[in-house]
Design a protein around this nucleic acid. Structure first.
Length: 291
DNA sequence: CATACGTGGCC
DNA sequence: TGGCCAAGTAT
């Protein structure tokens, strides 16, 4: 067996981080909020915002009662602000249709906006202690190395990846849920993308990659995400003006953030389409609901 | 299946 | 300096 569950669980007990959303008293809502915030955003940047949200919006109905604009503003610079809008919408559904209780059933979770294959199972496992294959980028990398002996994970394949993890999971709910947290943590702390710390790895002796002599990753190169000069950058600049402003602003104010007028207007339009901005009757621009 | 979608830190 | 990377989802 390429990943000994008992060994991994022991390692997690002594080396796992004490993250606030892992505290036993953390609510399922707290777990859900953390999972959404952690999508593509590092733990260090999520922590302070997560604490603010838990204090301000301790239950889904509290978040749902706030305006979209307040939520986008409180999202700050975590990035991908559509996540904030989707979480706000999900909170409304949970409050209205699920008695203000975050669902534990994977299919019910999948039906909520912003919750996909990873997050649905992460909530089932981490908030409710259920057995579900939780596959994120960390887990995919650990499996690629420890199980398949490859230098890194190739392109994601949801079905195949979940089957791989399913095969490693302990049979019972509680150990399986803890295993899921542990294997993610191993990928985050030890089996990292760059410079893996194999000397500190609890499953080094059974790791297929190590046993194969740590061959270089041979798969297709991952597409590099450009940022400078892209619409993503311009959208970010535009939205940041509104986050830093008390109320609606004139278009002239937004025109200052980017030189290319065509791109600027295209991005402004896409933000309106996404519902991240709204135009007032007076032609000003505002965060949704803040006018 | 590929691509769009923020932001910032690290080597 | 600039590419790479960070608990993905929706289309």
């Amino acid at each position: 067996m390429a990943v000994d569950a008992d060994v991994l669980l022991d390692w997690f007990s002594t080396h796992g981080r004490d993250l606030p959303w892992r505290e036993p008293e953390c609510s399922a809502w707290g777990v859900l909020v953390s999972e959404i915030m952690l999508q593509q955003t590092p733990v260090a940047r999520v922590q302070p915002i997560w604490h603010e949200w838990m204090a301000r919006w301790p239950v889904p109905s509290a978040l749902a009662a706030s305006s979209q604009g307040e939520v986008v503003r409180a999202w700050g610079k975590l990035g991908y602000p559509r996540r904030a809008l989707r979480l706000h919408e999900a909170a409304g559904v949970i409050a209205r249709d699920h008695g203000d209780v975050v669902p534990s059933d994977v299919d019910t979770l999948l039906a909520l906006p912003g919750i996909g294959a990873y997050t649905a199972r992460a909530v089932a496992a981490f908030a409710y202690g259920l057995r579900a294959p939780v596959v994120d980028t960390n887990v995919r990398r650990v499996v690629a190395r420890a199980v398949h002996g490859a230098g890194d994970a190739g392109p994601a394949s949801n079905t195949r990846d979940m089957n791989d993890v399913e095969a490693l999971l302990p049979a019972e709910d509680a150990p399986a849920a803890r295993f899921s947290a542990a294997i993610m943590e191993l990928g985050a702390l030890i089996c990292t993308a760059r410079s893996p710390r194999c000397a500190d790895c609890p499953i080094y002796d059974e790791c297929a990659w190590q046993l194969a002599g740590k061959p270089e990753y041979a798969g297709p190169a991952k597409p590099v995400q450009k940022f400078a000069g892209t619409d993503r950058q311009v959208r970010g600049l535009l939205l940041d003006v509104l986050r830093g402003s008390e109320g609606p602003v004139e278009k002239a104010r937004l025109d200052l953030v980017w030189h290319d007028g065509g791109q600027r207007d295209r991005c402004l339009d896409s933000l309106l389409v996404d519902g991240l901005l709204e135009q007032t009757s007076g032609g000003l621009f505002a965060l949704p609901g803040e006018h």
